[in-house]
């Protein structure tokens, strides 16, 4: 914030940074080889919807866009297997904090990122970039990994353009050791959020 903003008491809405998202596929490879974690193929995008009809219209538009993309590219024929076919393989839900989640899935991480990016771009172009909170990518233990790891997520913070790891272990507990290990692992592949106080937990997230 500049001096004038302070003097005049105003804040500019922070635009979302969408670019760093594309670093995820290479990080997913590192996670699998060094961390024993593979993508579950699920991702969620969280945003604070404006009042009124706008939110539904926009989400409908995103659904159509994704459906067109699925039909057009033969590489992603496996996607669209779940969810309402009219919505093009994405479901949406509202969490306890009033944030909307668009849930997307695609077994291929690169395609998953592309799909999330398409949804992001639609929202940003409609002027709702400042309302984007985070997107969340689900990971689970690979077949040969130790069984003690349960669920693991990489969360992308739009306003920071950074990722952070989130490993919930039951009710309101998180595996900080795993999170810090992943931070060390992915330091080169991903912009990991350096400020630990911004690694906020998403306990009730609908992403698997």
């Amino acid at each position: 914030m500049g001096l004038f903003d302070t003097l005049l008491g105003r804040t500019k809405p922070v635009a979302a940074n969408l670019d760093a998202l594309f670093a995820l596929p290479s990080a997913a490879v590192t996670l699998q080889t060094a961390g024993g974690l593979v993508s579950t193929g699920h991702a969620g995008l969280s945003w604070k919807p404006p009042a009124g009809q706008t939110a539904e219209d926009l989400e409908h538009e995103i659904g159509q866009l994704l459906a067109v993309n699925d039909a057009g590219s033969p590489a992603t024929t496996t996607s669209g297997s779940s969810g309402d076919p009219a919505l093009g393989a994405f479901t949406h839900t509202t969490d306890a904090f009033g944030f909307h989640w668009l849930l997307l899935d695609d077994p291929d991480v690169a395609d998953l990122v592309t799909r999330v990016h398409m949804a992001n771009t639609t929202l940003t172009e409609a002027g709702w970039g400042p309302q984007l909170l985070c997107s969340m990518f689900g990971f689970g233990p690979s077949a040969d990994a130790a069984a003690d790891t349960k669920s693991f997520f990489l969360v992308y913070l739009y306003k920071r353009g950074t990722f952070y790891p989130f490993a919930p272990t039951g009710k309101e507990h998180r595996d900080n050791e795993l999170e810090l290990r992943v931070q060390a692992l992915l330091g080169k592949d991903l912009p990991v959020e350096p400020d630990l106080s911004r690694w906020f937990p998403l306990w009730d997230s609908p992403v698997r």
Binding site: V14, F99, K159, F200
Partner: peptide
């Protein structure tokens, strides 16, 4: 805390 976390992430400010 959950509400404050989310608002701070939206506004890009320290918690």
């Amino acid at each position: 805390h959950g509400i404050v976390d989310r608002l701070c992430a939206l506004a890009d400010m320290p918690k």
